[in-house]
Each structure stands twice: as structure tokens, then as C-alpha cells.
Amino acid sequence: MSLGRLALLTVVAMIAFASNSLLCRVALRETDIDAASFTTVRLLSGALMLWMMLVIRGQQRNHSGSWPSALALFAYAALFSFAYIDLAAGTGALILFGSVQATMIGYGLYTGERFTGLKWLGLFLALAGLVGLVLPGLTAPPLAASLLMAAAGFAWGVYSLRGKGAGDPSLATAGNFIRSIPFALMLLALGWAAGMLNADLPGTLWAVASGALASALGYWIWYTALPHLSATNAATVQLSAPVIAAIAGVLLLDEVLSLRLLLASAAILGGIALVIQQRAR
């Protein structure tokens, strides 16, 4: 794959991730849909979208995806939704992407990747920028919700790492989403038994958009790029997603464009550039 195509796919995937964060925030904060229903609708709509695309392209999904990857996908989606019930957006983003990065970089170091001095500098700069972006809004987060979001980050890191050897990205992503449906239905059944289910039309529509567009298509693109990225580069580049989400909040949600946002964005994107450009020894 050419460097230009890889860069384009990665950018589009990060935009999808950021869009997914915005859609989840709107649905869980401003509508009546509950976390279990949102997660189920998100995964169901994502599976349907990918299945339809495979049918249109005439592809068979036999032997595609895997149950461990599907479980990791479901765990990320469910834990993410439940964590955001009690976490502030900035706190949640910091915990989620910190956990993702720790998982993927830890795996990279475990399997023999080595950092140059500039690569360590880039990683530190990116992390410092992310902390600078969310720190002013941080409060003491609830321990249970923080652990849920950290677990969601771990699950997403595992899902991303497994995507590096998953074969055809379209088949793998579709297979994983379809395999996640039984887990989502079990979660919905538990929510119904506990009397916690609640949904409205706006929340359901946001969940459909999150699943069919930002999740299904975004993960498909991400799985296409992953085999050509090292674990550390894949982990670090995902730090751009909170920046993109913050900028989108300014443009779409009328949030204030501050000097802090500009400086933090420059630090994160500059750090990512250093990590990607420096080859591991």
C-alpha cells in the first residue's frame, strides 16, 4: 500500500472515531436511550450495514472474523456506553485513549519493538498535549466508571491488535460485527430483566448512525490500514481522535475555540508525526 493511501485511510478512520464519540455523547447525554439499548442498536445496525455491503459486492462471509475479536468489539462498545453515563467527556477520552495506547504500546514493546529518542519524545509530546487538552475540565471521576472506561480502552486495543492479522478487512469487520450480535442481545435481555431499558426515536437514530456509519464503515477502513502500521504507530495515531472530536465540537456544537485547544492540538499532532516518522530499531 502506498504511503499516501495509508495516510488517507488513517485520517478517515480517525474522523470516523471522532464522529462516533460525538454521536455517542449526543445520544447518551441528550436523549432518553439507555446504555444497553444504545449498544445493541449500534452493533445491530453496524452488522446490517456491513452485511448489505458484502451482499452488494458479492462476497461471502464464511470463516470471516473471529469470536475473540467479536467479544473484544462488544466489550468495547458496551463498556464505553456504560462508562459515559457518569464520566465527563474529557475525563472519559483521557482514560479511554490512555488505556488503548498503553495496551498497544505495551504489546509492541513485548514483541520486540524499540523506540528511538525522537520516538519517545513524540510519544511524550502527544500525551502531554492530550493531558493539556482535557486537564482543565477534569474532576475526581467515579472509580467504577473510570475502571469501565479503562477496560473499554483495553478491549479496543485488543481488537485493533487482532485486526493486524485478520485477513480481508471487509470480511473480518463484517464477521466480527455479526458475531457480536448474540452478546448484544444477551446484554439487552439482562437490561430488560433489570427493568433498565428505555429508548426514544432520537436516541435510536443516533445509535443507528453511530453503528452503521461511524462504527461499521470506520472500523472497516481502520482494519484496512492496520496491517501496514506498527502497534506503536497505530496506538499513537489514535490520540488524534480526541482532538478531531474537540474541533468538531467547536464547529458543530458551538463550543468555544480556545488557545488551549489550538496548542494542545499542535502538540498531539506534532507528537504523532514524530512517532510515525521515526523507525523502530
Rank of each mutant, 00 (worst) to 15 (best):
T139K: 13
L48N: 08
F115N: 07
A152Q: 05
L123R: 00
A88V: 00
L127M: 15
F97E: 01
P68A: 09
A7R: 13
L263Q: 05
R42D: 08
L125P: 01
A189L: 15
G195E: 13
G163T: 05
A280M: 06
A234Y: 01
F154A: 12
W192Y: 15
S99F: 01
L3F: 04
G191R: 06
R5Q: 10
G98Y: 01
I276S: 12
V11H: 09
T204H: 01
W206S: 06
G112Q: 08
Y219G: 00
I247L: 15
A214Y: 02
C24K: 00
L94N: 03
N20M: 15
A140H: 06
L187W: 05
I56W: 15
R42G: 06
A144R: 12
W222F: 08
T31F: 12
M14Q: 14
M149T: 05
A241R: 05
L125G: 02
F82R: 02
S45Y: 10
D86I: 01
L28G: 11
L9A: 13
A267Q: 05
V134A: 10
P136S: 11
L125C: 13
R61P: 02
G191P: 04
T173E: 02
L54C: 15
I178H: 00
S180I: 05
A77D: 03
C24Q: 11
F17D: 02
L259Y: 09
L197P: 01
W222K: 03
G271D: 04
L190F: 14
A35V: 09
L171E: 10
W192D: 14
G249L: 07
L87V: 08
L121N: 00
A36D: 15
A72N: 09
